[in-house]
Design a protein around this nucleic acid. Sequence first.
DNA 1: CTATAATAAGAACAAACGTTCTGATTTATT
DNA 2: AATAAATCAGAACGTTTGTTCTTATTATAG
Lengths: 207, 207
Amino acid sequence: MQQLDIFSYLGKLQDYYAREKIIPSTTQLSVLWNVKARSWTHQIVQRLKEEGFLENAPGGRLRPTSRFFERIVGHRVRAGLPQQAFDVQPELLRIDDYLIEKPSQTILFPVRGDSMIDLGILEGDMVIIERGNIASIGQVVLAIVDNEFTLKVLARDQEGYYLEARNEKRSADYPSIRPGHKLEIYGFYMGLIRKAHLPGHRSGSSL
Amino acid sequence: MQQLDIFSYLGKLQDYYAREKIIPSTTQLSVLWNVKARSWTHQIVQRLKEEGFLENAPGGRLRPTSRFFERIVGHRVRAGLPQQAFDVQPELLRIDDYLIEKPSQTILFPVRGDSMIDLGILEGDMVIIERGNIASIGQVVLAIVDNEFTLKVLARDQEGYYLEARNEKRSADYPSIRPGHKLEIYGFYMGLIRKAHLPGHRSGSSL
DNA sequence: CTATAATAAGAACAAACGTTCTGATTTATT
DNA sequence: AATAAATCAGAACGTTTGTTCTTATTATAG
């Protein structure tokens, strides 16, 4: 008997996907894999599905699963490291996938000031905002106050809704904001991305 | 006459793609877009191709271009609310491009603990690490200490290099780490991504 | 060698596909 | 009201699709 070497097929497909960002049809897979019969290609695909590398998207076409992209760093680098890291290399867009659920209603917003520093939101960060105006108390929202956007925590007391900063040290500088008549909420804080500002030159000595 | 509102179609497709990770067939696009005639769907697709949001993969199927993933960046003042108008081009950026310069040398790393909280790095964040071992003093590095990854600030005094935490409040809990004989640096902190934990539901999907 | 299961190929088919054509309806402008 | 372009719909085409069936070839264990 033999053992079908799933992984040689998988490898070729992974390389193809890295290039073309798409899983091809059975016919094209046959070419890619040097398999003469589509039926056999189909068989291999079935195996890859059983192993959890592929799955059927609505409509029947194939798409990669998360296993398809799996690659543990520890293996490549150092055997036996307890914590795993995630390799981003094969599929760049996974960060985008991870962060954004409704692209059409999402905008990025640069943060100014340190009024939300206690939540780890720093000046220069890009906040991910999803449009919507049904907010819960305690949620971080992007509100419009005096025709300017401001990122604050939505709060409420007997007098009604208001906006709170989150900067304990400078709480005096960031008093709660009570809207004149109506509180206009533009969207919700869904997360953030930050680009570290590196020290200008990398002159350090090698270790 | 009229103006075909490309962006309403594009938005629906972007949301669909975020869910299903695939561009569907013309037939399914018709359903998604509520268009009765596949011919008209085909027309809209042509327009999206002309605008550079879609392209044909080998084999003829559609795939998203990099423009497809561009996100709108908002501004401080309300004046130019991002309404996706044609006349005023909003600023766009791709999250992955923005964050990652060298995909092949970049990994993501989940943060545990609050030892770096003063730098706005919280538990649950994903730190972006670029491999390399030439570090500058003051830089945040991912080091390997006792066979575990740890994120700390690289420092140096007359005795040599060591690692510092950044948590003023609990500085007693995070003493500086002096490597036994050799300090092994895995990579540098290049930024981070954070998914806000919303009140109620939605725990993160796997990356 | 023989038996057996994995591997490979081909033929065939209904369904779905991308595309083109032709015609109807809507819409804004004159 | 008349016009012209944009929008929408339906039908029809040849091709590719995913899938199943049947049959040949290989490799290994007994």
